[in-house]
Amino acid sequence: MSETVQEKIKNYRTAPFDARFPNTNQTRNCYQNYLDFHRCNKALSAKDQDVTPCEWYQRVYKSLCPVSWVSKWDEQMENGNFPGKI
């Protein structure tokens, strides 16, 4: 019954329900998954571990967030002025 991370990512279709964000407006969910993706990458990279589990967060934020937001946040990350804590 238990699926591996790889199987979950492969079978991913859309963002699952997250009890932290029960409302219709998914803006906070989008932003939180973006942060979680980059935090996960940073933490696992620092330990020289495989960052494959982080792909889950990336797929979720890419399905929830408008492309314009993601490109703006990526640009801010490159410039070093992203407002979130990563």
Rank of each mutant, 00 (worst) to 15 (best):
F82V: 13
E55I: 13
V70K: 02
N11Y: 05
N29P: 01
Q76Y: 06
P16H: 09
N81D: 12
E3W: 12
Y57K: 07
V60I: 14
F21A: 05
C65S: 02
E3L: 15
R13F: 08
D36G: 04
Q26Y: 00
S63I: 02
P53L: 03
L35G: 03
Q76K: 14
N11F: 06
E75K: 15
R20E: 08
R13C: 07
Y31L: 12
P66K: 13
R59T: 05
K62F: 04
Y34L: 08
L35D: 08
A19M: 10
K42G: 01
P66V: 05
H38D: 02
R39Y: 04
N23L: 14
T24R: 15
I9A: 06
Q6N: 11
R39N: 09
M1Y: 13
V60T: 06
S68I: 04
Q49R: 14
D74V: 08
I86L: 15
G80Y: 07
N81T: 12
R13T: 13
F82E: 11
Y57H: 13
N25E: 10
D18H: 07
K62D: 04
D48F: 03
S63M: 06
D48N: 15
R59H: 08
C40M: 03
W69S: 00
V70T: 09
F17S: 09
P66R: 12
Q58E: 12
L64H: 01
Q6W: 09
M77K: 15
Y31K: 11
R28H: 10
L44Q: 05
K10I: 09
A19Y: 11
S71F: 07
N29V: 04
L64I: 12
A43R: 13
Y61G: 00
V51I: 14
E75S: 15
R13Y: 10
Y61A: 02
Q76D: 11
Q49L: 13
Y57T: 01
C40G: 01
D36Y: 09
E3C: 11
L35C: 12
D50H: 00
V70R: 05
L64M: 05
S63R: 09
A15Y: 00
V60E: 01
V60Q: 02
K10Y: 13
C30F: 00
D18T: 07
N79H: 11
R20T: 09
V51E: 08
V60A: 03
M77D: 05
C54G: 03
Y31T: 13
N33C: 03
R39Q: 11
T52E: 09
V5W: 05
L44N: 05
W69P: 00
T24M: 14
Y12C: 04
Q76F: 04
K8H: 08
Y34V: 02
I9H: 04
V60M: 03
S71L: 13
T4K: 07
N29C: 10
E7K: 14
K47P: 00
C54L: 02
C40D: 01
C65P: 01
